[in-house]
Design a protein around this nucleic acid. Structure first.
Length: 586
RNA sequence: GUCCCGGUAGCUCAGCAGGAUAGAGCAACGGUUUCCUAAACCGUAGGUCACAGGUUCGAAUCCUGUCCGGGACACCA
């Protein structure tokens, strides 16, 4: 139940009637007409720009058109007043019954209030995290993980069919480096003194258990083999161990994926899916042999100008054509990416969302170019970048030396402050703005800590219900009973304001999903919590506004309907973000 | 050199597909308060939305250019 949509439809109906009556021309484009909450509550409950947008095509002026439309809207159910204001806004005031209906709808639907109708036919693929399986994840990965996960949850709640996917970069040179690093740890496990880890290998301790496990399984038998023989064994063991660690960390964050897709699976025999994809693109003129211009700025020392296999990316919006094959004859990472995207397309996805770190900004154009080559206008490729996370403790930067694997891992942060704090704080900022994450602040039980503030509002709602149960042991407080309460009692300005915010939840969900911005959910919840806490505080000064009133069963039930609605929406929004909604916070 | 992201109150940030007088929290100032389990609360003040053009009924929002900060820029992943 979205009152903004409902009145938008009524508005469209009113305009149709005016067209039918010959007062407006046919064929008006209503796509820019919106019905929205006015910024200033003094302007009423709903505002529309219809008269200003349609005046020119209708061959009249905004105020005159507004008068026509206003006359029609006046007759609509639930409308108590229509005002024309400013340059031609039409402001509507709604009867209290409209908002009472909203509360009844929430009482009936609970946490399903605001859920979008299922959209069929355009499944969405959200790829996120995709951290290389060469070591533990850091806090930056965590941001992408939480953002992608919450975005997927938001899209699903808004009605989209969503698949959450992780691309495992288990091919290429870095994986061989991983294997050699693990092999060194294996020799170490066998008792050999390996000394310092050589430059270019992964030095972290996290590979020691892999070495131990290899010893357990293979004894000393790998030592005498050629590298060509041991490398696949060690590599597979190392990748499995790294992925197990990553999955474990993701689980600790509450991040889930439906599909883990292996890059190596794309290579296969005779080039596998990659070769097929290149052949397919070649057939359509997207592949040729040629040269790329040297990079601008600093020219790399080992730059070689050579003819190579290229994807004609410039035909589809990219700045330069992109190499598909390396000088050693193997495929580039980019070639695998192309094959992977084609795979997604063939699995039926028509919207592909990539959540990447800001350092991958250079990938946006080429991914979109690939999308056009593969799916044309039929395929939407949306790349969302997450900016850096700066880790602080009480305002001071946490020291992290880049070398020697001496950085704070994501897991350490989760273990210190908890999953909810990590998730909520990372969502309490636009994804494309840098984020300061303060380890001290996020565990504070204070108003300054949004995680606590919002969760506490939910716990406080639950507390009100416990109070009510104590005051009225025989009172039926389920959704049905609440929806039958006499809601006309809720006439205080603060109460009405709270209901107004509740009524905006479905609209907020829809626009947050459409713009791929889960942070809007977090900010909305913070605002709702603020309004609720504020009303709760009013009860101190004005006891008649308290939710639970020992001497007035009727008003208690009405207020419980309001509290129940706040609680449902907090629970719903927090669930979308993957943050717990605690019953109490002792 | 090219591209991407950012620039909004002293600080940290919102600003809802272009809407009416640009908001919140912190800090500052003034007042109130010891509580339906809790974070104290209310109010006041604070702005050339980096800058200059443009688009239109209307721009923080869209377009172009400039300045400042961050990032990316053959083959690597």
């Amino acid at each position: 139940m979205n009152i903004f949509d409902a009145y938008q439809r009524r508005l469209a109906g009113a305009i149709e009637r005016l067209v039918a009556a010959g007062k407006l021309p046919e064929g008006l484009d209503l796509s820019r007409v919106v019905v929205e909450p006015p910024r200033d509550p003094a302007h009423g409950d709903l505002a529309t720009n219809a008269a200003m947008v349609l005046a020119k095509p209708a061959g009249t002026n905004p105020r005159a058109l507004a008068a026509l439309v206003a006359e029609e809207l006046q007759r609509e159910e639930g409308v108590t007043a229509v005002e024309i204001a400013g340059p031609g806004f039409i402001n509507l005031r709604l009867a209290p019954a409209v908002y009472q209906d909203v509360l009844r709808a929430v009482a009936g639907l609970g946490t399903d209030f605001g859920r979008g109708a299922a959209r069929t036919g355009k499944p969405v693929n959200v790829e996120y995290v995709s951290a290389n399986p060469t070591g533990p994840m850091h806090v930056g990965h965590g941001r992408g993980a939480v953002f992608g996960d919450a975005l997927a949850g938001l899209l699903a709640f808004a009605g989209h069919e969503v698949t959450r996917e992780y691309y495992i970069n288990d091919a290429g040179a870095q994986i061989e480096v991983l294997a050699r690093s693990a092999f060194l740890r294996y020799r170490e496990a066998l008792g050999e003194d390996i000394g310092a880890i050589p430059e270019g290998l992964y030095p972290g301790d996290y590979l020691k258990p892999v070495g131990e496990a290899l010893k357990e399984r293979h004894g000393a038998s790998l030592v005498d083999m050629d590298e060509a023989a041991w490398l696949p064994i060690v590599r597979d063991a190392a990748i499995d161990a790294m992925m197990a660690m990553i999955r474990d960390d993701l689980a600790a964050l509450g991040v889930v994926h439906d599909v883990f897709f292996s890059e190596r699976a794309l290579h296969g025999k005779n080039g596998g899916a990659i070769a097929e994809t290149i052949a397919s693109l070649e057939g359509r003129g997207y592949v040729y042999r040629g040269r790329v211009p040297p990079p601008k700025g600093q020219l790399p020392e080992d730059w070689e100008d050579r003819e190579q296999l290229l994807f004609r990316a410039t035909d589809v919006g990219d700045d330069i054509d992109r190499p598909l094959m390396k000088s050693d004859g193997s495929y580039t990472y980019f070639a695998a990416d192309v094959a992977y995207m084609r795979d997604k397309y063939e699995r039926g996805f028509r919207e592909l969302i990539y959540v990447l770190g800001a350092d991958h900004g250079g990938y946006v154009k080429r991914l979109q170019a690939v999308g056009r080559a593969i799916g044309g206008e039929d395929l939407a490729v949306i790349v969302l970048l997450c900016q850096l996370v700066k880790l602080l403790r009480a305002g001071e930067p946490v020291k992290m030396s880049k070398r020697a694997g001496d950085f704070v891992t994501l897991r350490e942060v989760i273990d210190e402050v908890g999953r909810d704090a990590v998730r909520f704080m990372m969502l309490f900022r636009k994804n494309d703005a840098p984020l300061d994450f303060d380890l001290a602040k996020v565990v504070e039980q204070s108003k300054d800590n949004p995680v606590f503030y919002v969760q506490y509002a939910h716990a406080r709602c639950a507390s009100v219900f416990r109070q009510a149960a104590e005051a009225f042991p025989d009172l039926d407080m389920n959704g049905v009973a609440l929806s039958r309460a006499d809601l006309t009692i809720l006439d205080d300005a603060a109460e009405i304001d709270l209901v107004r915010q509740i009524a905006q939840y479905p609209r907020m969900i829809e626009s947050a999903a459409a713009s791929h911005e889960p942070h809007r959910v977090a900010f909305y919840l913070h605002d709702l919590a603020s309004a609720f806490h504020s009303l709760w505080n009013r009860g101190k000064e004005s006891p008649q506004l308290r939710f639970v009133n020992q001497t007035d069963r009727k008003s208690t039930l009405a207020r419980l309907a309001l509290v129940h609605a706040v609680r449902s929406i907090l629970a719903s929004g927090l669930a979308v973000l993957g943050v717990a909604a605690p019953e109490e916070m002792r």
